[in-house]
Design a protein around this nucleic acid. Structure first.
Lengths: 106, 106
DNA sequence: GGCATGGTTCGATAATAGTTGAACTATCGG
DNA sequence: CCGATAGTTCAACTATTATCGAACCATGCC
């Protein structure tokens, strides 16, 4: 029975602001979100540019972002696609994502 | 020599996004920021409505917000005035504060 | 089936953050 | 000067979060 690999995602209406802010408050997670703003990535491609991070560490950050409702993580064949829940975030917290992504890096 | 009671505040240009997001990611701190959006308060008035919190705990939260550049905390006679650094935040991270304050509480 | 691939989950440990009482500092009113 | 007031800082403890190896689980290909 396929589909057992689906991970739980909060639905758009129940996103909690402080959870989202916390998920975005980590520099490595925020950097990933910026990259996801340009399009979905498979998990392996979520590695920070330059440095290698253990799979388990990366997976943990993905979990934090997913449980806050910032990203979606769906199985696709042997891999998984990670994408930004842009529309859901915009619906729930209008302007928030734009403000975060629009801020100058430093 | 008065003025020794001044606490350090980061200047507007050097605010760090992840620090601001982290400071706002705590429910009790965010609740305080919402109240400060309506005007400055003395520290004693920063107590959460209803429950009493030890002074040291409140002071710690104020420190987190101040060091992130979210609030200003200035001595005024025997007390201190706490205010939201709205203009500085708007300059540095346009739209962020509005999005956070505009979000429906739940 | 057997095995490599792509990832999550578990468990342990290290690091960071929150909570609080007590000590301390500064100011104002007698 | 003395005491009360308004808050910060310190130090100790607890709780949450981050990191990472190892175990585990599906999937796809041979």
């Amino acid at each position: 029975m396929p589909g057992t690999r689906d991970l739980p995602h909060p639905d758009a209406a129940s996103l909690v602001l402080t959870d989202v802010l916390f998920a975005l408050s980590d520099p490595s997670r925020l950097a990933l979100v910026r990259r996801l703003a340009q399009g979905p990535l498979e998990v392996a491609a979520c590695q920070p540019t330059g440095g290698e991070v253990p799979k388990s560490t990366l997976s943990h950050h993905l979990k934090t972002l997913r449980e806050a409702g910032v990203i979606r993580n769906v199985p696709e064949g042997r891999q998984r696609y990670v994408s930004l829940r842009r529309q859901d975030l915009d619906d729930r917290f209008p302007g928030l994502l734009d403000a975060v992504l629009g801020a100058t890096p430093e």
